[in-house]
Design a protein around this nucleic acid. Structure first.
Length: 794
DNA sequence: GAAGTGATGTTTTTT
DNA sequence: ACATCACTTC
């Protein structure tokens, strides 16, 4: 029966595609460029292409797909799975950073890094740079951390090593002019410091891979042989370095150059981080002689005609772009509404009441609606009025869970436990909670490390300090060594809990009885719960893609097929979270209005979109307005914003708003004038009319006075370990793995009753594919028998 | 080494 | 407005 189903899907899925899409899917050999307008079925093309390859006999692990977000990778895998089944999970699909980190851990010995290297996030990076600037006694007005960081980042992204930098007269001249003559020294020191710490920043994950392939052709060859087909999503967002690596993968003598990149130059919104659409243009040139085929996906399946036409009009004001004509197939649809407000407060109020109206008139749920803005700080006023109107909402963006101090503190201990060279982790926790190792002592340790060539951790043992401090350090070191020992044998949760207790972090947090303090303690408990969930998980290939394939452990072979397996150790957990953001954590089941920045909305779609704060200086941002390139990027950003809408699009602006504590008056955004009147709903409630309409709604809603809040709490809360057991844990007795075979009926704590359809792998790597009838979605789970909590029934 | 005070600088940010 | 941070003072 399963087989029959499969053949049906196989024969039908190509018919879901239009002509261009189908060509893009079936042109598998040689270089391909897919220029994909918004809503044109880009993801569908990519996933079907992979499915098609696998059906033609390509092994899943011979296909490498690089994306920018974990979410995109996960979605892609899920969608391939729908077409071709669980085999899809064997495809290497992940972010540039996560895939490269896997390879780098596996090949670490070639580049003088430990395979358990730490990944420094941008806070760590900033902190290292800050320390260096301080150590060098440089004026921090001239040498601002952010400035240095972005210059270092752009060096790495353009393959300029410190060594190369030294020889570049033009770059050094730039530094002189910018009054930052010591930039080179900082860069050099920063690089050395990261290396000494056994740490890589986000750029290193790319740069070191390039270096690895460059300096070790035999290693590069291994991966070239392995990945016979390469795909890159969102190619317009790649930087110079990313494209250089992509070329390393496919450019070699005798290469079939089976590469397919998908992108839309009009949706490039990360130029400020080094992304360059030049890559798309270069790609065309670079692969010209290898018979590159270009496909333009121009039919928009997402939005109605007014929206698509307006978007086309707006983007036509950008001169540099690949010519394409996006057209809609969804009918004329509603005209675009415009909200003019006097103040930012009124804007918030009006948007909220519009949402109420839309929900009634157009039968929309909260989840169909999103409010987009240019800067995260704009969310506040919308939150306020959504609360008043009793509309559930969720704010995305802002500070992520993993960036909170209390979380970083605990994680720093965990990091130190795995990699003692990790200086940022060490600096963070050496005196937290307080143990009398102050600034002066740390400076001494640091200076000693520098002149003796030791790591900071090693310096702890050798440095000469007053007896009292020495004693404190001794206690600290012994404590961490205890954690290290424990992490050899125990799983991540056991170690983390032990650390939280032994360090006194928990005690410290529980002392604080303020609301914020209690929140912090709660956050740490949530983190521990999250680790528990991670450790307990016995599903091998389920919804979460980003779980580690323990390359370093050698369980997965690079030449053969991958054997996916969880690494439940602390090290495994850290690898898992290092590249996670909380955008990856949305629960689609809850019904809330989405609030996010336009950047964060890329790739998403909603029935109704509100694009707010359309004022000069804000959108376009004052930071980008002074250069034509900056303005173009702002315009692309606006293009991305409006093309998120399927049916309803509402634009809003305010005559005045509070910015940086001052009331400012800005004129309406120039982008508004770039939309032709014919697409705008002039009858929409504006001016006095609007007030009437607004009043009506306000009456209906009982006015905006305080009501019980229905807002989904601020940022995401980590899920506690799944409370919804299908089976009562008390009656549950797991059976030994040896009793479980194909055909066995089993009981699972979380998933209920299921039937084992097949078993693959050998010994402790045996994986059961089990069909759980009681589940609503993704009924088929693959469960590692070694960890499975399964009871044989019947 | 800790707590309190004034100056300062604010975009977006998949990883 | 707000948070961060260097600098003071105890």
């Amino acid at each position: 029966m399963l087989d029959l189903q499969k053949t049906q899907t196989q024969s039908s899925y190509l018919q879901d595609l239009n002509d261009v899409q189908r060509q893009a899917v079936t042109t598998t050999e040689g270089p391909v460029l897919v220029v994909a307008g918004p809503g044109s079925g880009k993801t569908r093309v990519l996933t079907y292409r992979i499915a098609y390859l696998i059906e033609k006999g390509v092994a899943p692990w011979e296909i490498l797909t690089l994306t920018f977000t974990n979410k995109a990778a996960r979605e892609m895998k899920e969608r391939i799975e729908k077409v071709i089944g669980p085999r899809a999970q064997r495809v290497w699909a992940g972010t540039f950073h996560s895939i490269f980190a896997r390879i780098l851990r596996y090949e670490a010995q070639h580049i003088g890094y430990p395979s358990n290297f730490t990944i420094y996030d941008s806070d760590d990076t900033k902190s290292v740079i800050g320390t260096i600037i301080k150590e060098m006694n440089l004026n921090k007005e001239q040498y601002t951390v952010n400035n240095i960081r972005s210059r270092i980042s752009s060096c790495k992204s353009n393959l300029v090593t410190p060594k190369l930098y030294e020889t570049k007269a033009d770059l050094r001249e730039e530094d002189r002019v910018a009054r930052r003559p010591y930039f080179y020294e900082i860069y050099k020191k920063y690089t050395a410091r990261c290396k000494r710490s056994g740490a890589m920043d986000f750029d290193d994950l790319l740069f070191r891979l390039y270096e690895l392939f460059q300096n070790h052709p035999e290693v590069a060859d291994k991966y070239r042989r392995r990945f016979k087909y390469l795909m890159v999503d969102e190619f317009q967002d790649t930087n110079y370095l990313q494209y250089a690596i992509v070329k390393k993968f496919v450019n070699y003598p005798g290469s079939p150059r089976n590469i397919c990149v998908v992108g839309d130059d009009a949706q490039s919104i990360y130029a400020f981080r080094g992304a360059t659409i030049q890559n798309i243009l270069d790609y065309g040139q670079d692969f010209k002689t290898y018979g590159i085929k270009t496909f333009k996906l121009e039919q928009n399946y997402r939005s109605t005609d007014h929206i698509v036409k307006a978007a086309n009009e707006v983007i036509s004001y950008n001169t540099k772009q690949i010519q394409k004509t996006i057209f809609s197939s969804k009918g004329e649809g509603h005209k675009i509404k415009l909200i003019k407000a006097m103040t930012d407060t009124e804007e918030g109020k009006r948007v909220a009441s519009f949402i109420v109206e839309q929900k009634n008139r157009n039968h929309l749920s909260n989840r169909d609606i999103a409010i987009l803005y240019r800067t995260n700080s704009q969310s506040r006023v919308f939150e306020e009025y959504l609360r008043n109107y009793n509309i559930a909402y969720k704010v995305f963006g802002g500070q992520s869970f993993y960036q909170r101090k209390e979380i970083k503190d605990l994680i720093a201990y965990m990091r130190l436990c795995i990699n003692q060279r990790d200086e940022e982790a060490l600096r963070r926790v050496i005196n937290y909670p307080r143990r009398g190792i102050g600034k002066t002592s740390i400076e001494k340790i640091s200076a000693f490390a520098d002149q003796s060539g030791k790591t900071l951790w090693e310096a702890l043992f050798a440095v000469d300090l007053p007896p009292r401090t020495k004693n404190s350090i001794g206690n600290f070191v012994r404590m961490v060594q205890g954690f290290m020992l424990k992490s050899q044998t125990e799983d991540a949760h056991a170690v983390a809990e032990h650390i939280a207790r032994e360090t006194g972090i928990m005690r410290e947090l529980n002392k604080d009885k303020t609301v914020e303090g209690m929140n912090r303690a709660e956050n740490v408990r949530s983190l521990l719960d999250g680790i528990k969930t991670f450790v307990d998980n016995d599903v091998v290939e389920g919804t979460v893609d980003s779980l580690p394939r323990n390359l370093g452990g050698g369980r997965e072979t690079v030449d053969g097929g991958p054997i996916d397996q969880f690494d439940r150790s602390l090290s495994g957990y850290l690898q898992n979270i290092a590249l996670m953001t909380d955008l990856d954590e949305s629960d689609s089941k809850d019904d809330y209005v989405t609030l996010m920045s336009v950047h964060a909305a890329k790739g998403l779609e909603f029935k109704s979109i509100f694009v707010t704060g359309l004022e000069e200086q804000l959108f376009p941002s004052f930071m980008s307005m002074d250069t034509p390139e900056g303005l173009d990027e702002e315009r692309r950003l606006f293009y991305v914003a409006i093309t998120r809408a399927e049916q309803l699009l509402t634009l809003s602006y305010a005559n005045s708003r509070y910015q940086y504590g001052k009331q400012r008056f800005n004129s309406p955004s120039r982008f508004l004038n770039e939309i032709e009147m014919e697409h705008l709903d002039t009858a929409s409630p504006i001016g006095s009319k609007s007030r009437a309409a607004f009043g009506r709604i306000e009456q209906m809603m009982g006015g905006p006075q305080e009501r019980q809040s229905s807002g989904v709490k601020g940022h995401f809360k980590r899920r506690a370990p799944q409370p919804s057991f299908h089976v009562d844990p008390k009656d549950f007795k797991p059976s030994p793995a040896s009793e479980i075979q194909a055909g066995t009926k089993v009981l699972h704590l979380k998933f209920g009753e299921g039937k084992v359809t097949s078993i693959d792998g050998t010994r402790d790597k045996r994986v059961a594919t089990i069909f759980f009838d009681g589940l609503a979605t993704e009924k088929e789970k693959r469960i590692m028998l070694r960890f499975a909590k399964l009871q044989v029934v019947g």
